[in-house]
Nucleic acid binder design. Sequence first.
DNA 1: GTCTATATAATGATAGAC
DNA 2: GTCTATCATTATATAGAC
Lengths: 201, 201
Amino acid sequence: MNTLKTPIPSTRERILTTALRLFNEQGVAEVSTNHIAAACSISPGNLYYYFRNKQEIIRELFQRLNADWENSLQLSQSHAPSLDDLRSIVAANYQIVWQYRFMYRELVVLLRQDAELRASFLATRQRGFERFRELVDSFVAAGVFREPDDPQAVDELLEVCWLLNEFWLTYLEVNGRRIDEAGVQQGVTLIFRVLQPYLSV
Amino acid sequence: MNTLKTPIPSTRERILTTALRLFNEQGVAEVSTNHIAAACSISPGNLYYYFRNKQEIIRELFQRLNADWENSLQLSQSHAPSLDDLRSIVAANYQIVWQYRFMYRELVVLLRQDAELRASFLATRQRGFERFRELVDSFVAAGVFREPDDPQAVDELLEVCWLLNEFWLTYLEVNGRRIDEAGVQQGVTLIFRVLQPYLSV
DNA sequence: GTCTATATAATGATAGAC
DNA sequence: GTCTATCATTATATAGAC
């Protein structure tokens, strides 16, 4: 019955979820393969049966991040988006960023170490950004978003919002703030604060 | 004559500037005390004559960051600040962040490892933020900045600008953009883009 | 102050038994 | 699949000669 309701995670799966948790809690450099194995209650050798090295674990976690993004992008393809849709899309983005927060904390170093990982991450991220742009464009078309005089303005506002999405939770962590639903909501509020002067509501 | 024009830096000084450069280039975990010593063309043992360990080097670099901030705060105490003053203050902030960019890239992990370092960094940063707030308040008083209806708005806008100041250059690095004067200027532009709807100019 | 030599520990990783 | 045993490598750090 356990098999049906809560399937026992495979060893491989436990390694990945444990690694993600430890990386999020302590940072990549602070967590060795030995630590991960110990936290999984398996031997160090066993870990290497599933992954050739630590980098491969990181790479797989990045692939899951990418998959979650792709998934989230699918879901947000509603055709007559409202500001509430924007609100929930932004909140969903924050959730993903939080789930894989160690990556966003250490992006520069992690991407520099692995060209392949860098390429796939940036590609997915680019798609997300463009989806976000389409969303705002549709608001402009619908008159919800008043187009600014300066044609560069929309691009710049988009970039600010995207940066907030990626770094707001890190910023909260730096401040020593416990991250909870309220923290995420505050991040949503900030993005709407930036856009607010252009919203005709 | 060399002594007068460009004094030969002490070994201690060379260790610090070399460590800063390597950390900025490669990240903290990637650079060992051996690497630093080699880049200074001194023996590993000699490095330990000046610093008890790697953490002490990092801590000293943080102290220099703090000193640069304090210094910058002094300079920005002009009494009838204009928007151009704001512009140059923001640009100066970006310069400091860039000079010590490894810290801003890895803030969460670095601060967690050292409570003392964390306390002093957050204290200085808090002062900088409050100085920034005073600046904006003075603009409100002078009528340059139109106070928004929502009383929370100013706080939120300030927080967005501060976050931009701390993370914009990291964001550029993630994008693989070479950081130059233009990149910094773009960061200044973004902050003014956020504030622009409230400026009566 | 600076070096060489070395101690100690941790890490990433592999081989082979079960 | 999982473990034990083991290794090569690297990193931090110290002792003592010069």
